[in-house]
Design a protein around this nucleic acid. Structure first.
Lengths: 217, 217
DNA sequence: GTCTATAGGCTGATAGAC
DNA sequence: GTCTATCAGCCTATAGAC
């Protein structure tokens, strides 16, 4: 999870390349693409501005590379969790758990994703989103559909919609987190980490509860 | 809902003031605060740049005024829907319905809200968010808590969390909408309006299903 | 209230030395 | 690979005429 020690003989530069991507990822997530001058990326990465243009054709290309890198990691992590789930209900919980691990280990991820979604019209990451969709979203929807066929899940919910309602909870929680203290408590203090842990468990519970057949019908 | 005809005798300027706010609202939502030059706001509003500084102290002040205006309207609309709901289950559906009406009548709203949330740390709208929280979120959580006390809702879910899971669905749907076609269908074409109507109904169903007691426990 | 004209700073990007 | 030096353009904001 931490940056691995890089081979020091032929390409002593690879660490700079990583540093640039890391700095850009954090800054773009925190303040947005246009709000961050490359000068600032360079400063945070501890390199010169010109070096960024050595690795990337333009500021926008840098942004695209950042998006591609982190969406790739997101796909890998969640896929691994899904592979290990024994049944449909466990799979639902596995998805929210994987989301939580991802979001809390890299707290700026949801911001980046959401910024990308909001700016989508103008945007960069279509190919990368297609990959994300194929490997994750459709897989989750398929699991729900299967559960419905076997009778463990209620049949009246649309599987695509249910999948979306399931995955929407945690990203939106992390985005809204700074405002949540105000919303729920009338207080400016943001929720602490244990609240996030609790909400992650809740998100699994909520989705499973929605998918189970009801007594009242 | 449309701009009301303004008194034309003493202040013929009020229409310019409105035009500026309208233009800024749309542009900031579509492209973000830093990405939009005031020059562009002026052009879209059909006025001169200097006039914007006549009404607003700075670009950031203009942004704050935009946020305050539309959050006020959001609060008013959702409150009205909640007032009319006869019972807890209807109230849940009323919230998602009000969200849907708001979001589809002003499609750029969720973008603005989310941008504001993402940029929150640096941010502007604390007071306005507190108002939103008091009148809407806590009211919804209270309704859920009441339903639990009466036995119509399952008691094991946290009322605040359940309220959040409920309201997260629709904003996130509208934000992710341009990507949804890709996610679900592997196709770049975005969902049409009837899909949004269907999802709004689903969001109510999903939340109510999650809150009802289950047969399996 | 509304405009024209303009200042001054910062930004993305490149050329070229090492 | 990495840096120094530099430019042209755009951006926020103001002064002042009408």
């Amino acid at each position: 999870m931490t940056a691995p020690p890089v081979s020091t003989s032929p390409e002593p530069s690879a660490s700079s390349a990583h540093a640039i991507l890391d700095a850009a990822e954090q800054l773009f997530a925190a303040h947005g693409f246009t709000a961050v001058p490359i000068k600032e990326v360079a400063a945070k990465a501890g390199v010169n501005v010109a070096l960024i243009y050595y690795y990337h054709d333009s500021k926008e290309a840098l942004y695209r590379h950042v998006i591609e890198r982190f969406v790739g990691e997101l796909v890998r992590r969640v896929s691994a969790q899904l592979d290990a789930a024994p049944d449909a209900e466990q799979a639902i919980r596995a998805v929210t758990r994987a989301q939580f691990e991802m979001l809390s280990s890299k707290p700026h991820f949801p911001k980046l994703i959401v910024r990308e979604l909001v700016d989508y019209q103008a945007a960069h990451a279509v190919g990368v989103l297609r990959e994300l969709g194929a490997s994750l979203f459709r897989r989750l929807a398929g699991i729900i559909r299967e559960g419905q066929a076997r009778g463990t899940f209620r049949p009246d919910l649309d599987p695509n919609f249910a999948a979306f309602s399931t995955i929407a909870q945690l990203p939106y929680f992390f985005i809204a987190r700074p405002a949540l203290g105000v919303l729920a408590l009338g207080d400016a203090r943001p929720f602490d980490d244990s609240t996030a842990v609790d909400f992650a468990r809740h998100a699994g519970d909520f989705a499973v509860a929605a998918l189970r057949p009801t007594s009242t019908g």
